[in-house]
Design a protein around this nucleic acid. Structure first.
Lengths: 216, 216
DNA sequence: GTCTATAGCAGGATAGAC
DNA sequence: GTCTATCCTGCTATAGAC
């Protein structure tokens, strides 16, 4: 995200900068004075382009967050379609890796989840957008994929199962802070690999399936 | 928490009120003007008793959050000690119910998790206090309880397993908002029972153990 | 101990020059 | 389209009367 180059146009620079700052410090702690200073443009530009701070915030979701979430989804689907056969294991693994080793840079993952986490605790219109445009459809698609292999459970149970898998993935991705505090381990690349394995295994067992042994 | 009665003393009223308001709207959105108005005391009282807004916030954690978390822990232990034999199932179930059907009123659960969720995304000194005083010891205790039944895995795996169980419990407790949006169901008592069953089952399977059938 | 009044600052928004 | 200057509101914190 260090692409706030001056050749990008004020509008884009504002979106880039605002996203980084909002993620880092939260909506309230960031002033439009901060944003315009970092974006190297004038204070009034925010009002000119986005009709105010709130408008800028929503446009960050419209133009960055939603497309980025779609990239995770596309990555997942490409993976699924490349498999000969979709089993519970391939689905869960593809999902975990789409988040943890997917199309997003580490920096983007960080930003994305910080903003999402903030929305969960301070819900605004942006959360509704994410739920409607990305989360709900994605959950539905994953549920449909798993349906054939989990015949014995109800639709409602299936939904809760899928949510649980997402919960684990999200928790281990965005909860790095307390997790690091409790485990005493930094999120190095190596540790992230370990977490991917852990989440995949735990989810698979959780779904009631046995995972085939697989060299890590 | 509607116990902000005038006979409680200004100090206690301020702690009660501040907790409710901070949980509902977040530290930044709540002014000491709001707090003192609701607590029916003077604006200057916050500075007099707590040396400022931040001091009040930290004292909410010291005097409400930490003791409350300890109550969950105590509830869990009482339950464990009443069992003839501690199995993985009894531990997981006791843990889930301590959070979801435990010693806290629904209102307290709400407040507690909102404040914790806010700390996770906006970490302050309060999070360190919670981790050191409550979370880390509790995780260690649960790990020790499970150790005998999960001999085959390393300490590190065990820790991740325990964190995963907590992750599910916390997600389904504090993540009610997006979950309701996705499932389209309100968190009624009946639905909460269902969630307890789901979390317990998913965790047990996740830990690699088979759950005995049990009438729901 | 409790209150009023106010200092002192920072923020969002906007009017209007260029 | 871009910028400066400014308005207005709201905040925390404190000084000092009672």
């Amino acid at each position: 995200m260090k692409t706030d180059r001056l050749d990008k146009g004020v509008r884009e620079r504002l979106l880039d900068t605002a996203e980084v700052l909002f993620a880092a410090d939260g909506y309230d702690h960031v002033s439009i004075r901060d944003i315009t200073r970092y974006a190297q443009c004038n204070l009034a530009a925010v009002n000119y382009y986005f009709k105010g701070k709130q408008g800028l915030y929503l446009d960050v979701f419209r133009h960055h967050m939603i497309p980025r979430a779609r990239r995770i989804r596309d990555f997942f689907w490409k993976r699924i379609k490349s498999e000969k056969k979709t089993t519970v294991e391939t689905v869960v693994r593809a999902l975990t890796e789409a988040y943890m080793h997917g199309p997003l840079s580490q920096e983007e993952v960080e930003i994305h989840h910080k903003l999402m986490a903030r929305e969960l605790t301070n819900p605004t219109k942006a959360l509704d957008m994410m739920v409607e445009d990305v989360i709900r459809p994605f959950v539905a698609e994953v549920s449909a994929l798993l349906r054939p292999d989990l015949k014995s459970i109800s639709d409602e149970e299936l939904l809760l199962d899928v949510i649980s898998v997402f919960a684990l993935i999200l928790y281990f991705t965005f909860g790095r802070l307390p997790i690091s505090k409790v485990t005493g381990r930094e999120y190095t690349d190596k540790y992230r690999d370990k977490l991917v394995e852990h989440v995949t295994r735990f989810s698979l067992y959780g779904l009631g399936c046995n995972i085939k042994d697989k060299e890590t």
